[in-house]
């Protein structure tokens, strides 16, 4: 059986800087993968390439057995690979519901249906009270949830979460944990980028650690946490591995 996502030799350069260097990994259907690394190690850049927002300098990406590297983001999304943005990207001048409807239109044609899907997704992320508020009036935390609702509305098979737990209180992290677990049990595969270790270590079946764009470790959360190379990479970093 082929994996849901197969990444081979993925590389991205910005001028002289190699932001992502020769990454190779697989993600199987139903898995939750943690992608961790210090600030600036290339996690978001990896997501941007997987989702089609950025063209890789080299390497291949196969999703569902189909090569998708270099194709445009909207087509990647319609194939069932969605992402959230670390720097939230709302549509500011329309309501939360309308924001999510844009995602829902990937699968439905009519506004009525799209609106129903949108309200359901807002319910799932706990934004129902803000359903008719303009996105520009939401707080950052609400916008992070809106990011998830928008991506969910596209009915992805694989969802890339970029720091959705950052800045949440401990209880909020718990709520988010439960939501992601629930979605995973419904069949959505996840790659999770996160500095909040409690979140990512709790969820991940497997972790990939990158530093300066290159993979330095892979394994279960325990294996990764006990890996000296990982400790060295995080040394001097604020994020604690505890």
């Amino acid at each position: 059986m082929t994996a849901l996502l197969e990444v081979h030799g993925l590389t991205r350069r910005f001028g002289g800087l190699v932001a992502v260097n020769d990454l190779t990994f697989e993600v199987n259907e139903g898995e939750m993968i943690g992608l961790i690394g210090p600030n600036g190690s290339g996690k978001t850049t990896t997501f941007s390439m997987l989702s089609g927002a950025l063209k890789p300098s080299a390497g291949t990406i196969a999703f569902n057995g189909e090569r998708i590297e270099g194709i445009k983001a909207n087509r990647v999304c319609r194939k069932g690979l969605a992402r959230t943005f670390q720097v939230v990207q709302p549509f500011p001048d329309i309501t939360a519901t309308e924001n999510v409807m844009i995602g829902a239109f990937v699968n439905v044609g009519g506004a009525r249906q799209a609106e129903a899907t949108a309200r359901e997704m807002l319910e799932r992320v706990g934004l129902t009270p803000k359903a008719d508020t303009l996105a520009k009036e939401l707080t950052l935390l609400q916008l992070k949830r809106l990011e998830i609702a928008k991506a969910l509305a596209t009915e992805p098979k694989l969802l890339l979460l970029d720091e959705v737990a950052a800045g949440l209180t401990s209880t909020e992290v718990d709520v988010m944990l439960r939501l992601v677990r629930q979605l995973n049990s419904e069949g959505i595969t996840f790659i999770i980028v996160e500095h909040v270790m409690r979140f990512v270590m709790n969820l991940s079946h497997r972790c990939i650690v990158i530093d300066f764009g290159s993979q330095i470790a892979e394994g279960t959360p325990e294996e990764v946490l006990n890996n000296p190379a990982v400790h060295a990479a995080y040394l001097g970093e604020e994020a604690s591995l505890a």
Partner: peptide
Amino acid sequence: YQLIAVRENEDAAEALGVD
């Protein structure tokens, strides 16, 4: 809706499947 998404935030629209 897609046009408005394009106006409001093109990257986000693209990421949500809008050509």
